[in-house]
């Protein structure tokens, strides 16, 4: 498993909000060790009469030993919240919040390079590791199953579909990472593929891309040069017209490289098993893993 495991001590920024409360409860049910919450002005309270709430991330980290942060604060305050977590020395930050302006995300990239923080998201479903019993995100926990397939994706519900297919084929997951649908996500395919390649528990990786940008091409280059584990890939949006934004801010065809067909070509040329039919992913993964033995 990668990024999270049973030793991950999670703090939740914006924990007292309605959605944050709902999702934090689901995370705890899955087994996540939520040690603290942060809501400025509500320090000293206990969330749901249990988790201590602090006014700042620094204080929360000092008193609870938190090493990861899950962020639910609304878009106008999310930039500040991410930087606060990074500056407090939190190593892993998962930001669920959507609608963060692109220029703020660009500033984040600059700032995070000077820290040792990994940011997943924003505008993402989060991370889940069934064997690590840790869920930092909003995905439905019950569709997952511990196992050896790593999943990395730019979308949310499409990932749940794929995970449900894997579970149906009795293929469990080591870790599933949702990178998010923005044009400037904190992490990318290459960074996560690298971690899966090094992770002894991961035997194969499912990659779910979409139109827009060139991050799938960069992934293809990494797969070709450095990946020995099999990768099964699908890129959503073959039927999308150019110049129209498909829901996600990052999902827009602006040049030929950002088309789904180009991305799938690159991934196939790099040695990935590529399908243009996402209903086949579970089945294909089983086949690929079967031929490995």
């Amino acid at each position: 498993m990668i990024l999270v495991d049973k030793n991950t001590k999670v703090l939740v920024q914006g924990i007292t909000g309605r959605e944050a409360t709902f999702h934090t409860q689901r995370c705890i049910e899955f087994g996540t060790n939520v040690v603290a919450g942060v809501t400025p002005g509500k320090g000293g309270l206990r969330w749901e009469e249990e988790v201590p709430v602090f006014n700042s991330v620094t204080q929360a980290k000092e008193e609870s030993g938190a090493n990861a942060s899950l962020i639910f604060v609304p878009a106008p305050f999310a930039f500040d919240a991410i930087v606060e977590a990074a500056d407090a020395g939190i190593k892993l930050v998962v930001c669920i919040t959507e609608y963060i302006p692109a220029l703020d995300e660009l500033k984040l990239q600059y700032h995070l390079r000077s820290t040792s923080t990994t940011l997943i998201g924003p505008n993402c479903p989060g991370i889940i590791s069934p064997p690590g019993k840790c869920k930092m995100g909003i995905m439905p926990g019950y569709i997952h199953k511990p196992g050896n397939v790593g999943v990395v994706s730019r979308s949310g519900t499409l990932t749940y579909e794929v995970v449900a297919q894997l579970t149906e084929q009795s293929l469990g997951q080591s870790t599933c990472v949702g990178l998010g649908g923005d044009p400037l996500p904190g992490s990318n395919f290459v960074a996560i593929l690298k971690l899966f390649q090094e992770d002894p528990e991961t035997k194969a990786v499912v990659l779910i891309g979409e139109i827009g940008g060139t991050t799938e091409q960069e992934a293809a280059e990494f797969i070709e040069k450095q990946m020995t584990k099999p990768v099964i890939a699908y890129v959503a949006g073959s039927s999308a017209p150019a110049g129209k934004r498909m829901g996600h801010a990052g999902a827009i065809i602006t040049g030929s490289a950002s088309k789904a067909s180009k991305k799938m070509e690159s991934l196939a040329a790099a040695g990935a098993t590529v399908t243009d039919n996402f209903a086949q992913i579970g089945f294909l993964t089983k086949e690929v893993l079967g031929s490995q033995k």
Binding site: L158, S238, S239, M246
Partner: peptide, 10 residues
């Protein structure tokens, strides 16, 4: 979901 919506069109 945007990704699933694109995949559905596909």
């Amino acid at each position: 979901g945007a990704g699933l919506a694109m995949a559905t069109m596909d």
